[in-house]
Amino acid sequence: MSSISTETVRRSLRVDPDLAGDRLDRVLARLLPEFSRGRLQRWIEAGQVLVDDRPCRVRDKVWGGESIRIEAELAAVDTHQPQAIALDLVYEDAHLLVINKPAGLVVHPAAGNPDGTLQNALLHRAPELSALPRAGIVHRLDKDTTGLMVVARTLQAHHALVEQLRRRIVHREYRALVLGTLVAGGRVEAPIGRHPTQRTKMAVVNNGRAAITHYRVLESYPGHTLLAVELETGRTHQIRVHMAHIHHPLVGDTTYGARPRPPRGCRPELAAALQGFPRQALHAIRLGLIHPVTGAEMLWEIPMAPDLAALLDLLRWKATDGIDHS
């Protein structure tokens, strides 16, 4: 059975100059990613969105510097069923949940994954999340990316976390195993949008949204490099797209990567592990944010995902020994 609850949403925003010339509904969708564009359009049409204290139409354009005020009723109807799916909780209080997401777990229900998702699991673990947009999920990891995610438990926490993400206060650090040898860290600044012909993929495109990724070298192995990667922005598939863009795709990434290239003369165990690694080698290892209620700085760090740790052990053996003892 669906649960219904009502909350009043109040927001005060200012339009950034880099959004000048775009439609009001599109601008709001970028400023308030926690709400669907359809819902935002309904609020605009109902006069619940004021731009410089005046109601506007969905298609009206903004030019930067405008003040936007929203006061709208959020009727949350959860049509997704709670499911008893085990969660690895790293932290929990009355306002937040921090989860270590395993590989293979989809975050949101969608056409190809109507249930069995993190959202279904969260609704079972904390039923009050049905009152929040997307069950309190404020950011996501790809299905086969492992590691840390934060979930809001209250509307106050949800708003605060979304604002921290928008202001780039949330610190997210990943471990990424990539093809090829990098000798130094760097910065990738390249806009990301939908691939022009393959609509299920993202790509670096001129009209995409600004995207910035920082990386540094942690370990080097024959033909591979382990990177620490930090996100300055949070675009869909950002790390995977940016690493492929600089010709160092992630190991196991069949969407943006190349065929596995085991080092010449490596042991059969390593060749098999590289060729059979079932997912992109990406793990969200650290997460830092400001607590939405107490204001305390919080930081979590978890161990490497077991499958990726095992692959790295095999690569280290090759790098330090290199002799086939079999």
Rank of each mutant, 00 (worst) to 15 (best):
R23G: 10
D144E: 10
D53L: 08
L118D: 02
D60F: 00
G193T: 15
V170G: 05
V15I: 14
V170L: 13
S220M: 04
G252L: 03
V62F: 04
Q238F: 14
R187N: 14
I68R: 00
N113E: 09
R194T: 08
T225N: 01
A152K: 03
G257V: 02
R26S: 07
S3P: 06
N206Y: 03
T225A: 08
I239G: 00
F35I: 05
L129I: 07
R57C: 15
G185I: 10
Y256W: 10
L118W: 08
I212C: 14
L96Q: 07
E163A: 15
A135N: 09
R42S: 15
A46W: 10
R54E: 07
A258F: 09
Y256L: 14
Q275W: 01
R153S: 13
A310V: 12
I68N: 01
I44Y: 00
R37M: 06
M304S: 04
P260K: 04
T117D: 01
L74M: 12
A272G: 06
N120A: 14
T197H: 14
D144R: 03
L287D: 07
A20N: 13
E219C: 02
H80W: 12
G104E: 03
N206H: 13
H80E: 11
H224F: 13
P306L: 04
D253P: 13
N207H: 14
I192C: 08
V98D: 03
S36I: 03
L13V: 01
V15L: 10
L96E: 05
M243I: 12
V241I: 11
T225M: 03
A319G: 13
L132D: 03
G65W: 06
V27W: 00
Y91L: 11
R153Y: 12
I169E: 15
G47L: 11
T254C: 15
H195Y: 10
D60E: 04
V150H: 02
I246E: 01
R59N: 10
A211D: 00
G193H: 13
A305N: 13
A310N: 05
T225G: 00
Q41C: 08
R39G: 09
A111K: 06
H80N: 12
R240K: 07
L40C: 05
G276M: 02
R209F: 08
L13C: 02
K61L: 10
A296T: 02
G116R: 07
M202C: 13
A135P: 04
I285Q: 12
R30Y: 01
G147C: 15
G136K: 05
V162P: 04
H214C: 07
D88M: 09
D144K: 03
N100K: 08
G65P: 06
L74V: 07
L129P: 11
V150M: 15
L314R: 00
R125A: 09
A271D: 11
G295W: 06
P249A: 11
V90P: 03
R194H: 06
R10N: 11
L19I: 03
P102W: 13
E34S: 14
C266M: 04
E219M: 04
